[in-house]
Amino acid sequence: MDVVVAGASGALGTVLVPQLVAAGHAVTGLSRSPSGLARIRAAGARAVRADLLDEPGLLRALADVRADAVVHQATALERTPTRHRHLHATNALRDRGTAHLLRCAAQIGARRFVTQSFFLGYGYRDHGSAPVTEDRPFGELTGDAFDVHLRSMRANEDQVLGATGVEGIALRYGLFYGSDRSTAALLDLARRRRLPAPAPAGVTSPVHLEDAAAATVAALERGRPGQAYNVVDDHPVGFDEFVDALAAAVGAPPPRRVPAWVLRPLPYLHALMARTRIRVSNAKAREELDWAPRHPSCHEGLAEVAAARA
């Protein structure tokens, strides 16, 4: 397929573009920065400078492009967000950016559209011990400061899954880690014993970037139109266990525990690390996409990431 990838120089896009090229797809990658464009070209793809929030400019940039599919992987996140405002730019990309890309899909003749969604669209709360599957409510508003994020995640999916003229698919990725700057920063903090673990801790569902990219290729090729898929590894972990795995990966002692309430001045981080308990199931993606994570848990995955950086 000829595929346009928005966010092609981001954390996931940087891993996804080489996998798409290796699978035989012709890729046009979008980025706003010269360094991002250089990374796209180095991966064997065509690079186009474009801003998803500038609709007229985006349409002009792709005026001579024809493609079979669009993959939306654009975010504005470079590190783990700690406050609500750190997500505002990404919310705009999920809302207005998605609308602009759908109009581009019509212009370039694309019939398939895969969008990046996020597992926390199920809600920043305790989901209990049962696996969270795709039939759970998604993007339900709760009447608090998290509604702005839930609304943008729901808007992204609603636009794509409900679009006419394209086969829309949403991938609800877990907590990313891998060869990105955010993971590198966490590993360095763990090495210096400056990354404590909250007690009590929440439960999260991670996914290695390589596995997330492989699931994206599979969804592009085999995903059912109108469907959402959870893309996570096989083993949800407590956030304290995740921090322990970071330390173990770099040979550091187990991190110290701190009361979860000390994170409350950083409300988004507190919700991510302490308040939310979510065990996401990847069974549907395994069955329908013929995909399985190469890294069953963050323990193996983080050890591999640390070894590659050594």
Rank of each mutant, 00 (worst) to 15 (best):
A106V: 14
E78Q: 09
G139N: 08
G165R: 13
D135W: 13
P137T: 07
R85T: 09
R49V: 00
G139T: 02
G123C: 07
H86V: 00
F119K: 00
A76C: 06
R60Y: 04
F146E: 06
L171R: 02
N91K: 00
F146M: 06
V132G: 02
G57R: 04
H127F: 03
R112K: 05
H84E: 11
I169H: 03
R112A: 06
A42I: 09
V70I: 15
P34T: 07
L120E: 08
R112G: 08
M153T: 02
D135M: 11
L171T: 04
R41V: 14
E55W: 06
A67K: 07
A42Q: 09
A67I: 13
G165F: 08
A130G: 05
Q116A: 14
T133G: 00
R136P: 04
A99D: 01
R85P: 02
G36C: 05
A155I: 01
Y124A: 02
F113A: 03
V160F: 05
L53D: 08
T164L: 07
D95A: 13
L150N: 06
L37I: 06
R111D: 08
V70F: 02
D126W: 13
A130R: 15
G57W: 04
Q116I: 00
H88F: 10
L58T: 07
E167Q: 15
D158L: 08
R151F: 01
G123E: 15
G44L: 11
R136D: 06
D158H: 03
L52P: 00
Q159F: 03
V70S: 00
R125L: 10
A63I: 03
H88P: 01
A110K: 04
Q116T: 14
L93K: 08
G123M: 11
D68H: 13
E134N: 11
T164S: 13
A42S: 12
T90C: 06
G109F: 10
A110T: 12
Q107H: 06
L77P: 10
E134W: 13
F113C: 08
L161G: 15
G162I: 07
D144Y: 01
I40N: 07
P34Q: 10
D144S: 05
Q107R: 14
S129E: 15
R39M: 00
